[in-house]
Nucleic acid binder design. Structure first.
Lengths: 200, 200
DNA sequence: TAAGATATTGACCGAACGTTCAGTATAGAA
DNA sequence: TTCTATACTGAACGTTCGGTCAATATCTTA
């Protein structure tokens, strides 16, 4: 590995990290290329040397982030025995990994905005379905083990997704402790509800 | 009332309606003044004759929408007897009133964007606390009537808010029937959870 | 060390957007 | 009818932003 290649890789990393941080914090549109380069100390042209476009940079981050997230989850998953524990673990990872998944806020802008490329559109649709599939598996496991009631799994996966998206928005300006507490309470509610006794 | 004053009022209404529709559909930033005027048939200058600025227009819509929402709720509230029914009614109104509250998406951009005026910031903070207060009341009523378990009310209000925000995002591209179904399921889960039996 | 590949710079471009303003049309007052 | 306040128009302005490019610096290789 060259000295040049190493430094080039470091630059790429620095840009990606700064961009991810800003996208999460401010959203996609509200984050300008100039802000990203200002945060890295390098120049605008250099960013365009390493990444094709703003969209390309964002897409790169989406892929990277998703890979990391799944990898971290696979590491921890076997530590949890019950499906309920997995749910709490799931929530905790959501909070600790920068308080939200890129899908949550920044990607949502893409869904609504009308200026999205086909490539981006496809990739996002894919990620959403991956997300829902992840949630379905989580719920299915609980049903199989007898922990959860038989129910509309696809619907529940959507509700869980909604809960997670909403939580990340509500918690964006909260500190880690508060966020963790809210997430845990939310999962508790998701599992047990707030009604005094379940209808049988 | 003059003929002129009437027409002026109608223009104002037409602009406000078109703007609300677009803001809800596309978000705040993604909606341009030009689009709004194109949808009304009147001119850019005319919009600025009736409203101070884009922000001012948005603020006007927030106030108006909030008033309408609360008024409609007060109309229906007495029809529901149990707190659980109120929850479902709450969800239904959320869906029917254009699939979301302006707070949900467009206003969220303000929270994150750094270009907000103090006036807007204050008004939004006020509205959030009103929202949470509304949720608290709803939950408190259920506890008082013995329907809901005693619990961290402020936390639950936040979770409910997160759920509602998330639902509106997840349902934005769904039709009314689907959305209603998802919202109902979500409230069901919020009330009863998904666990096979509650921990006692 | 010379030549060439690679990495970085920052001025610049065109498009989009919010906002302004000089000017026009119209309804009611005199 | 004439005058005036109100309602409305659309070209133009200043700014912001994503993206480009010719020039330059830095490192590798021969």
């Amino acid at each position: 590995m060259n000295k040049k290649q190493i430094q080039s890789g470091q630059t790429r990393r620095k840009i990606a990290d700064a961009a991810r941080h800003l996208f999460v914090q401010k959203g996609y549109k509200a984050t300008s290329i100039e802000e990203i380069t200002a945060a890295t100390g390098s120049s605008k042209g250099n960013l365009y040397y390493h990444f094709k476009s703003k969209e390309g940079l964002f897409l790169y981050l989406l892929d990277e982030w998703d890979r990391d997230w799944i990898a971290k989850w696979r590491e921890k998953e076997h530590l949890y025995t019950t499906a309920a524990e997995k749910m709490y673990g799931f929530a905790e990872q959501m909070v600790r990994e920068d308080l939200n998944h890129p899908l949550t806020k920044a990607a949502d802008e893409f869904f609504i905005g009308d200026d999205k490329t086909c490539e981006v559109e496809d990739r996002l649709a894919e990620m959403v379905s991956e997300h829902l599939s992840f949630n379905r598996t989580l719920i299915q496991q609980g049903i199989d083990s007898g922990e959860f009631r038989e129910n509309d799994i696809q619907g529940l996966a959507l509700v869980l997704e909604a809960l997670v998206i909403g939580l990340s928005q509500v918690s964006r300006r909260a500190d880690l402790t508060q966020a963790l507490q809210t997430y845990r309470l939310a999962i508790e509610v998701f599992l047990h509800g707030i009604a005094a006794r379940p209808e049988t």
